[in-house]
């Protein structure tokens, strides 16, 4: 009994030093809050299904941001590129009748990967600060999106989005996609190429001195991000079931915030894709909780209580900000402890 307790304690102690620690704590807290307010209604298959289907584009976009953040960079063009995939896949077959629909989806995905690659070249080869080069890139993509379609229009075949928004044996189909991506991350996590990305984010100079090409690693990080943005764009398309040229842009900043809440450090070299997933779900659940609290929970306790949605947004934003500040403090501390400990491992 004592031994089990001891090893559990040691495991907990070890988990505290993992990047995912704070994200896990926060997400458990917010799930608890949701359960306390909504009770078992929170677990209804329809609730879960909607939750996952609407959250997934942000979750994958956050994973894309994490790939770049790990390497010590930042990408402000992910959200608008997600919209680009959406607009291209939906509108191109309409504008160019010779283009079969499935190929439009494939080309849209490949172009998103190309955008990621180009961002990597701008940052890696030309050495422009990533924040500004990707900001410039986001302008270009925005223009291209508006060229293809200047307003929300078009539609996605019912069979396609029905699959995405449906469920199998009560499990949302969108959850399967997420599971595949997370398994994919566990596959590439231990590979040399990924470790080089961590090294680059941790210390650029030392990485260069060990003989790793910093340019290639930067390009690799941005390309990986491009792949994930492409997938996010396809999920976004299936979620919207239409095309919206610029509505994805606001998701960029949300995804950065989500990654940081999950425990990724913006200074680089710290955090995993799981952090991104946890952070993004936290963001979605905070919105869920605050809107439920203001529209149903408080009115049920205090009859006649009603405030505008602005207070709701404001409250959600304050919670998010506190979450970020708390996580950064904890992550900074955890990183320092890991770097100090003799068994240096991730």
């Amino acid at each position: 009994m004592e031994g089990i307790k001891g090893s559990l304690g040691a495991q907990l102690e070890g988990f505290k030093r993992k990047p995912e620690f704070m994200g896990t704590v926060l997400i458990l807290a917010i799930i608890l809050l949701n359960i306390l307010m909504q009770g078992s209604a929170f677990f209804k298959p329809e609730t879960m299904q909607t939750l996952f289907a609407t959250a997934l584009p942000l979750v994958i976009l956050t994973m894309a941001q994490v790939a770049v953040l790990i390497s010590g960079n930042i990408d402000l063009s992910t959200g608008i590129t997600m919209s680009f995939v959406n607009v291209f896949a939906v509108m191109m077959p309409k504008n160019q009748p010779w283009l079969p629909m499935w190929s439009a989806y494939v080309i849209a995905f490949l172009l998103a990967v190309l955008v990621g690659y180009l961002n990597g070249v701008l940052v890696g080869v030309f050495r422009i600060p990533p924040m500004l080069s990707t900001y410039g890139m986001s302008f270009i993509i925005r223009g291209v999106n508006l060229l293809i379609s200047d307003r929300p229009q078009g539609n996605v075949p019912r069979e396609l989005w029905k699959v995405y928004q449906g469920d199998t044996f009560g499990i949302p189909n969108s959850l399967f996609l997420l599971v595949i991506l997370v398994l994919g991350w566990f596959y590439i996590k231990e590979r040399k190429a990924t470790k080089e990305m961590y090294a680059l984010g941790g210390d650029e100079k030392a990485t260069y001195l060990t003989g790793i090409s910093t340019v290639k690693t930067t390009i690799r990080a941005f390309t990986l991000s491009g792949v994930l943005v492409g997938i996010a764009g396809l999920a976004w398309t299936l979620m919207l079931a239409s095309s919206q040229p610029i509505s994805g842009d606001v998701k960029t900043l949300q995804s950065i915030a989500a990654a940081l809440i999950g425990g990724v450090l913006i200074t680089g070299g710290w955090g995993t894709m799981m952090c991104g997933v946890l952070g993004a779900f936290f963001m979605v659940l905070v919105n869920n909780a605050t809107s439920y609290m203001f529209t149903q929970f408080i009115p049920s306790i205090i009859p006649g209580f009603s405030v505008s949605t602005y207070y709701q947004d404001f409250a959600g934003q304050i919670i998010t900000m506190l979450g970020i500040v708390l996580t950064i403090a904890v992550s900074n501390n955890a990183k320092r402890m890991v770097n100090l400990s003799p068994a240096h491992g991730r």
């Binding site: 410039g136 986001s138 302008f139 270009i140 993509i141 223009g143 508006l146 060229l147 200047d150």
Partner: peptide
């Protein structure tokens, strides 16, 4: 749209 593209490319 073109204005956006030129602005970004110039930057």
């Amino acid at each position: 749209p073109i204005r956006n593209i030129i602005m970004g490319a110039m930057l």
